[in-house]
Design a binder for these strands. Structure first.
Lengths: 264, 264
DNA sequence: AAGTTAGTTCGGTATTGTAGAATGATGTTG
DNA sequence: CAACATCATTCTACAATACCGAACTAACTT
């Protein structure tokens, strides 16, 4: 374990989308290292383009980080395989489509096809979010071993983001059981107001739920009149992505192509 | 300058999308450092999620890199401001839309809205490409100071990717002059076969061309019947993005809204 | 079974990262 | 306008620790 590398990473991770600019002094307040240590770290990172220095002496993360993402394993192995299928899904549904993985106790969004009515300015890629109140997170949880689900649900305060957020572990567990049976989970505006989602899990070759994809919209019809059609194509998409990850669906749970399926 | 941090970065940058997996031995062949040095660097990076270790002992880049991109300055300052405008542009044109910045002598793609007929599986975000044979690159070059243009054109071999690639500096310079006058540049399948693009430059508050956006399609109509309409809305989009970057367009070059403009 | 290659552990040395203090630059307040 | 405060940067000296050779183990090859 090389201390200076650890510290360099901690310096980079101090920067966030809501706080993307720091002066040296501000960083010394955040991090438990002396000024000069952080100073030389910043200079080193700057020489490689990992941080940039503003005119006014402030620092932010540099562009050299962006090309690295193309080589990240999950992007090569999962995103690049899933992208064409998600494209078809998005064209069929005319709604935003997301791909996120389980990253520790959270979901990490690694791909998005955002439809025009998504008003959020920022790209979701790279964002992390809670598992218990998103369709993606619940879809992953619903197929995880019970003890792991417990450790995620119980080691975390279930924050009530909206009126619909499920904060009762009993209710949540019931919904996960239901999701496991149906093969998909919903987000009835449980995280953001007026955002409705359907999420379906993606499995790896060991049949572990490592990720999920979702259809997301601002129309509540998503969970009523459109649900049957959308959930079917979403589950099929997730299954085909899983297949490309080496997963072999069982005969009972397999989803077949039919007339309502755009993947004919 | 901290040596171990430099080395750690060099280790990470050894991974690419075409070569995303390495064993320790392979890395020692690529990098001029002893086995044990690279070994401890990998272990350190792994502890922070910056590299991941496969079952078979091989290494690849880890997911912890992905959230960092949300805090990268250019993504906060430019991408997040440009995204809604590019969304409108894409909806209007029904074509793929790209945003790339000048990064040294190359273009770095930082945002993309890919339309359904884009068959490429991979996301372009994070990719780098040459400036002299893309509409984005030429759009940036066309507004750069002459000496900087020279250093890019002359220090680089102009590879002939397709039959249409311009490899003659004289022809290229003439086209850049034309682009500067018109306010946009074309890519007539000069980099990839059957890909046609229109690119327009984006300026910062100092009126420097720091980036460009483009409309990209597989239909040659892009450069004929659709050109007038598309180039107008593209230029307007680029201007409005520039404005959000602090650029103040001059009265002569300003593009006004009109009936063919979706931004009414 | 011998040989080759790769991953990992170990330990001594010398490099070099670290942090205190001092300096210079900038901005702020009375 | 001066006195003060804050911040970035330079310098220096010591001690920590990164570094790398060598040794060891495991897996695979011939």
């Amino acid at each position: 374990m090389i201390g200076s590398v650890i510290k360099a990473i901690e310096v980079m991770q101090a920067f966030t989308s809501s706080n993307p600019v720091f002066s040296l002094a501000e960083l010394t307040r955040i991090l438990p290292y002396p000024k000069t240590t952080i100073y030389t770290l910043l200079q080193t990172l700057e020489s490689k383009g990992f941080v940039e220095k503003y005119e006014n002496g402030k620092y932010s993360l540099g562009t050299a980080i962006i090309p690295l993402t193309q080589a990240v394993r999950i992007n090569v192995q999962l995103r690049d395989r899933a992208a064409p299928l998600l494209r078809i899904l998005s064209d069929y549904c005319h709604e935003s489509v997301y791909l996120a993985i389980k990253d520790g106790d959270q979901c990490l969004y690694i791909y998005a096809i955002e439809s025009s009515d998504r008003l959020l300015a920022r790209s979701a890629i790279g964002e992390v979010g809670p598992m218990y109140c998103s369709s993606i997170g619940k879809a992953i949880l619903s197929f995880m071993p019970e003890n792991e689900v417990n450790s995620i649900i119980e080691n975390e305060v279930l924050v009530k983001y909206t009126d619909n957020t499920i904060t009762d572990p009993v209710v949540l567990r019931k919904e996960l059981a239901e999701g496991r049976q149906k093969g998909f989970c919903l987000d009835n505006s449980e995280h953001e107001h007026d955002v409705y989602c359907i999420g379906a899990p993606i499995f790896n070759e060991h049949a572990e739920p490592i990720a999920a994809c979702s259809i997301s919209g601002t129309d509540v019809e998503m969970l009523s009149s459109k649900l049957v059609k959308f959930s079917a194509v979403l589950r099929y998409t997730a299954q085909e992505i899983s297949r490309r990850m080496g997963f072999i669906p069982s005969r009972e749970t397999m989803i077949w192509r039919d007339a309502t399926n755009p993947f004919l």
